[in-house]
């Protein structure tokens, strides 16, 4: 019976799409809350090997939270961009909690899935990824943001290009470089 904040969010997205970027700030908490709720449903009391479908959650949240009659793909892209930030926080908080209570040892099996390609990352430590991403942000904000959007919201090149206001070619190049850099860092 709870009223979904759908209308509110749709309105904010319209404002963001109309260039009122400040409106995006209003989205984060709403999106964060919804994602956290969805994620908790999946994660609560799970064994460490449990799979959390991060991007699936993000898309589910989008479907639940945004009225679809009015919003175009640009709105969706803005939503996903906000959701990526929220999703990352949620995963990291979850991993931290796990680590804190010693049971999970901080390891959660994260399935970063998108449409056609779904791969499990066995025993991947999200905190490690978070550390590396944070370091990358210190070196190159654009790269870290591209990775964030790719990883945690499964956004397409075009969607990222739109929300970051750069060309798709730039996104692809930054992505390739970021990918190599991450690979190198994670395999050190």
């Amino acid at each position: 019976m709870s009223t979904t904040p759908s209308a509110q969010i749709t309105l904010v997205l319209e404002r963001v799409a109309c260039g009122e970027g400040a409106a995006a700030a209003e989205l984060l908490p709403l999106v964060y809350e919804e994602l956290r709720r969805l994620a908790q449903g999946q994660l609560r009391g799970q064994s460490p090997g449990h799979t959390l479908q991060a991007t699936a959650l993000v898309h589910e949240a989008y479907l639940k939270m945004v009225a679809h009659t009015e919003s175009g793909w640009q709105s969706r892209a803005h939503f996903l961009a906000v959701a990526a930030t929220a999703m990352r926080q949620i995963l990291m908080n979850h991993a931290r909690d796990k680590r804190a209570d010693k049971r999970g040892g901080g390891r959660v099996r994260v399935t970063l899935a998108e449409g056609q390609a779904a791969h499990d990352i066995p025993d991947f430590d999200p905190l490690e990824l978070d550390d590396v991403l944070t370091r990358l942000a210190g070196l190159d904000r654009v790269q870290s943001r591209v990775v964030e959007l790719r990883f945690f919201s499964g956004m397409s090149v075009e969607e990222i290009a739109h929300v970051m206001d750069v060309s798709p070619a730039t996104v692809k190049r930054e992505w390739r470089a970021a990918r190599a850099w991450l690979n190198a860092e994670l395999n050190r």
Partner: peptide, 21 residues
């Protein structure tokens, strides 16, 4: 590391995930 087929397992998994994207 651009497309290193060797390396640690999770690196490969991560790469193949990203490759797919």
């Amino acid at each position: 590391c651009d497309s290193d087929p060797g390396g640690l397992e999770r690196g490969i998994a991560l790469r193949s995930y990203m490759e797919g994207l």
